[in-house]
């Protein structure tokens, strides 16, 4: 093995080779369906990678496989060169529904993972204070989750995750339930935290804009069976703003690819006569029928 090769391997955080996961719907479903099929993907140390795609393309399944919540039917999922056996605090997951425990205060929530790790009380307090400051929630450390807004809850969940100093973060549509303004603030926050900590992040999202704004690479997924269609590099300096024209260019490119996926979905899930008037980019759809009629007149 050459030195260059070894250096390359060392920087690979997660590697998936030929990963498939099949689900069976009910007892009659003999064949089942592939949530993901034959996935090859390498995620590098310190990289921010997003998985985007239509619903049902298996992006959350892929995340759950890396997290260790689920096991692949075939192929291998490796984390830092070792196969993933189960979930653990080295690959910490942040959920869409924040998953804060309502019976604990914000501080106690942040200390939860530290208690599991067996840290002393003093060490827990110090560490929790540090990360609460990082997400600007020190003032609310003694509040209960039901007293916080959606954005604050998600920031608390991020503090709880970062506090155990995981080697990697897995984020499953963490901002999907938030309003656009709050999401914008959290994007800026997440970029700041990422630049500060340089964690490896896998980020699942529906939103193409979100993926481009945050990521070094965007993996565009396709559905039925779930697979990776293309991995796109976003070569823009961090932090980024939505107003950056380069983001708009990339967005058009990705939405163009996703449009094909959407067309397939419409064909699969609707009647023959279902033809949306606009595509994902807001362009009016010109169909063969329109042309034929126009030609005739």
């Amino acid at each position: 093995m050459t030195t260059a090769q070894a250096a390359h391997d060392a920087s690979i955080k997660v590697s998936l080779h030929g990963v498939s996961k099949r689900y069976v719907r009910g007892e009659r479903d003999r064949d089942g369906f592939f949530a993901v099929q034959d996935i090859d993907l390498e995620i590098f140390e310190g990289e921010f990678l997003s998985l985007v795609g239509p619903s049902g393309c298996g992006k959350s399944t892929l995340l759950n496989l890396i997290a260790g919540f689920e096991r692949p039917d075939s192929g291998s999922v490796m984390f830092e060169g070792r196969p993933v056996q189960s979930a653990g605090p080295d690959r910490l997951v942040i959920f869409q529904e924040h998953g804060l425990f309502p019976w604990l205060t914000v501080r106690q929530n942040v200390e939860f993972g530290l208690r599991v790790l067996g840290l002393s009380k003093a060490a827990r307090r110090a560490r929790a204070s540090e990360y609460l400051r990082m997400v600007h929630l020190s003032r609310f450390q003694d509040s209960f989750p039901f007293q916080l807004s959606g954005g604050m809850k998600q920031r608390a969940a991020i503090a709880r995750a970062l506090a155990v100093e995981p080697r990697m973060l897995l984020m499953d549509e963490p901002f999907a339930a938030l309003d656009p303004r709050t999401r914008d603030i959290l994007h800026a926050e997440l970029q700041r935290l990422w630049i500060q900590t340089r964690k490896t992040v896998v980020f699942v999202t529906h939103s193409v804009e979100e993926a481009i704004r945050l990521s070094d690479r965007v993996a565009i997924m396709a559905s039925q069976p779930g697979r990776i269609r293309r991995v796109l590099k976003v070569d823009l300096p961090h932090p980024r703003d939505f107003l950056d024209p380069a983001i708009a260019v990339l967005r058009t490119e990705i939405l163009g690819e996703l449009q094909e996926e959407l067309d397939k979905l419409i064909k699969r899930e609707g009647d023959e006569d279902w033809h949306p008037e606009e595509d994902l980019l807001g362009r009016r759809v010109r169909r063969a029928v329109d042309h034929a009629m126009g030609d005739g007149i």
Binding site: F69, A87, V93, F95, G99, F101, W103, G113, V116, L117
Partner: peptide, 24 residues
């Protein structure tokens, strides 16, 4: 989600029972 939070933080069976399942 709460069970998965317990798992991702590496909680054992007893920690999961006493710190997540029972309070919930």
């Amino acid at each position: 989600t709460w069970l998965r939070v317990a798992d991702t933080f590496g909680a054992g069976r007893l920690q999961r029972l006493f710190q997540v399942q029972i309070p919930s």
